[in-house]
Design a binder for these strands. Structure first.
Length: 319
DNA sequence: TTCCAGGGGTAGA
DNA sequence: TCTACCCATGGA
């Protein structure tokens, strides 16, 4: 067993721990969060199908990312480049948030802290993983989302070599938090090969099973290229319309995916948003959706981030 | 037991 | 475009 270490520098201000623990994604399988290190652990599947164990920690005092990759057999140059690219994408190291930070600085007060390197929200290496996880956040409590994603990974993910029973503490060199599944996020082909009923029964997806299965089948068959959404030349409303052609993705899920794609000009209106805005800006009353949206209107292309850090700064919530 | 969650699809107006 | 109704599942 060998470990390859790589250090990845961001474009602009960056804070490792705050970026990793910026929203729920850090605790959704196959990711796991170790708050003491702090570190993000992940069983990671490369395009070739090879499965590795990955650990990301802060470097340069948290201003960069250190990635340790545990592997059997040599890691090719192409594989190392792929991992670098995946980690850069997960931590959004190439995203330019200077415009958002400038806005926060002008606002001052508590927003000045946001300008100091916050704003990058953790995401998955693939749009596929982000899309499935987003569907698993709809009309369910957060504990249910974690259960469904854990179920998908446990039942349909490829095991990391050396894992005995699919769960456990794994390899000693990079011990992930206890109880973390030793499996990668399932490839579209793996979910397409199952039936919708199997997705419902083995992962507990409920009525979302046919939607996730249909998306997996379309991606596996090459009928849908989700990665194209990353560099789409479409306007945000046009892209949102395309996202919503996926069954299971409506207004909320489309806005969440737009955020994951690096577009922040749409708000994800869900029960959390409505409750927070009502309590914070309407004295506990329930505003109309139009009134609630208006709270962040002047943030323009940064609406989602403004809402998120407005919400996030006031909570000590454990994910 | 009932309600509802980090909503969305569908039918019918 | 808007509204009512339905949808699995588990936590509160």
């Amino acid at each position: 067993m060998a470990t390859t270490t790589m250090e990845l520098a961001p474009a602009g201000a960056f804070r490792f721990a705050e970026t990793a623990y910026s929203h729920g994604w850090v605790v959704l399988a196959p990711n796991a969060w170790d708050p003491d290190a702090p570190a993000v652990h992940r069983v990671h599947r490369l395009g070739s199908g090879r499965v590795l164990r990955l650990r990301a920690t802060g470097a340069a005092g948290g201003a960069a990312v250190r990635a340790d990759v545990l592997h059997r057999g040599p890691l090719s140059g192409a594989e190392e480049r792929e991992i670098r690219s995946d980690v850069r994408r997960m931590f959004r190291l190439d995203e330019d948030l200077s415009g958002f930070h400038a806005r926060c600085r002008r606002r001052g007060g508590r927003w000045a802290a946001v300008a100091d390197g916050l704003g990058r929200l953790l995401r998955s290496p693939t749009v596929w993983e982000d899309a499935v996880k987003t569907i698993c956040t709809t009309n369910i409590q957060w504990s249910g989302t974690k259960r469904m994603v854990r179920g998908l990974v446990g039942a349909f993910g490829d095991p990391v070599p050396g894992a005995s029973d699919g769960t456990g503490s794994g390899d000693g060199a990079l011990p992930p938090p206890e109880g973390t599944p030793d499996r990668a996020f399932p490839a579209p082909e793996a979910l397409a090969a199952a039936t919708p009923d199997e997705l419902a029964e083995r992962a507990g997806l409920g009525y979302r099973a046919p939607w996730v299965h249909a998306l997996a089948r379309e991606v596996a068959a090459g009928e849908r290229d989700l990665e194209r959404w990353r560099e789409s030349g479409l306007s945000t409303p046009e892209l949102a319309r395309e996202l919503k052609t996926v069954k299971g993705i409506g207004d909320y899920a489309a806005a969440t995916l737009l955020m994951l794609l690096g577009r922040y000009d749409e708000l994800a209106v869900d029960s959390v948003f409505r409750r927070f805005v009502g309590e914070t800006y309407f004295d506990g009353a329930a505003p109309s959706e139009t009134e609630a949206r208006a709270v962040y209107e002047d943030w323009g292309e940064w609406k989602f981030l403004a809402y998120w850090f407005d919400l996030w700064q006031g909570t000590e919530e454990e994910l």
